[in-house]
């Protein structure tokens, strides 16, 4: 950094240098790492309930065995056998995993992906135009209120027992959430932000890409995060109702054939997949919205 006093002297009327407290920091503020003890405590306090339930389950299931609740240790062994006996080349995932989970994940990706591709642009348009919002919001709100599981029979009627039924259900179940949250985000963009953008005379394309979408990003990502939960629910429900493959189907099939170990193992797999998806989304959100860390320093 050039010497600030040198920079000042190039000004024609040389104002007094700013007070020392007002000097420009040239490096990013380093994030202080919390001490190990603190992190240990917070780690323990966030996991204790999970661990307690697992221990309770294990103890009760071992002391009084029932068919329906096998000990957790056995479920974990089954879980490993079912899904993680494959080659290192396929990340140790077993053939069974690909047969059971891949169809589910494919439907999720198609249905939810389509909902994102359609929902975000539509939401942006509705957020920008009061007229369009007035025209379409009543319908969308009605659609949001409708429990989507009620549509399964209708969807089966239309598509039959086929992947398209599951994809359709995930799509219609999530697109409204994405539209509404995106529209809210766009409509809530500060008037001052828009006025500034206008005064900078930026093109409409740049306005959308560099100003509106980033400003609305918190709302957009809320829609993304909320909708993945709904998408997972609909993925499983639609498979419980009618399908020939998938993780939901695994649970149902095993339950109906009294293979409770396998049923719990499939249940656990769904849990792991859901948690992983949520963690990934959270990381993306943190990364994209890192500018939002407004607390600290200026404190205004």
């Amino acid at each position: 950094m050039p010497d600030p006093s040198g920079a000042t002297s190039t000004l024609t009327s040389a104002p007094p240098p700013p007070p020392a407290g007002d000097k420009a920091p040239t490096t990013r503020v380093p994030r202080r790492k919390r001490p190990f003890g603190r992190r240990l405590v917070s780690g323990v306090s966030s996991l204790w309930l999970l661990v307690a339930i697992a221990i309770l389950w294990q103890v009760v299931a071992t002391l009084s065995p029932t068919l329906y609740f096998p000990p957790l240790s056995k479920i974990f062994v089954q879980f490993g056998q079912d899904w993680f006996t494959g080659d290192p080349s396929s990340l140790f995932l077993s053939q069974h995993f690909f047969d059971a989970a891949l169809p589910s994940l494919r439907r999720l990706a198609q249905g939810w992906g389509l909902a994102l591709v359609v929902g975000i642009p539509v939401g942006i348009l509705l957020g920008r135009s009061a007229v369009a919002a007035a025209m379409y919001f009543p319908f969308i709100r009605f659609w949001l209120a409708e429990p989507k599981s009620a549509i399964i029979p209708v969807a089966v009627q239309i598509f039959g027992i086929a992947d398209s039924m599951n994809v359709f259900l995930i799509f219609v179940g999530t697109v409204g959430l994405i539209i509404v949250n995106t529209a809210d985000g766009v409509a809530g963009v500060d008037r001052m932000t828009l006025q500034t953008a206008r005064s900078l005379r930026i093109s409409p394309f740049t306005l959308y890409r560099r100003v509106l979408v980033p400003a609305a990003m918190p709302g957009i990502l809320t829609g993304v995060r909320v909708s993945i939960g709904v998408a997972l629910i609909l993925m499983v429900i639609s498979e419980l109702y009618a399908t020939t493959a998938g993780v939901g189907y695994e649970i149902l099939l095993n339950q109906q054939s009294f293979k409770f170990l396998q049923m719990w193992s499939a249940f656990l797999l769904i849990g792991v997949i859901s948690v992983l998806l949520n963690v990934v989304l959270e990381l993306i959100e943190k990364r994209v919205l890192r500018w939002q860390r407004r607390e600290g320093l200026s404190g205004q």
Binding site: A24, P25, W291, G296, L297, S298
Partner: peptide
């Protein structure tokens, strides 16, 4: 008088800055 602050975010600065 803010040379070299390109990489900072506005929220990392004081009001006057």
């Amino acid at each position: 008088d803010l040379a070299g602050t390109q990489a900072l975010y506005p929220w990392q600065m004081s009001g006057g800055m």
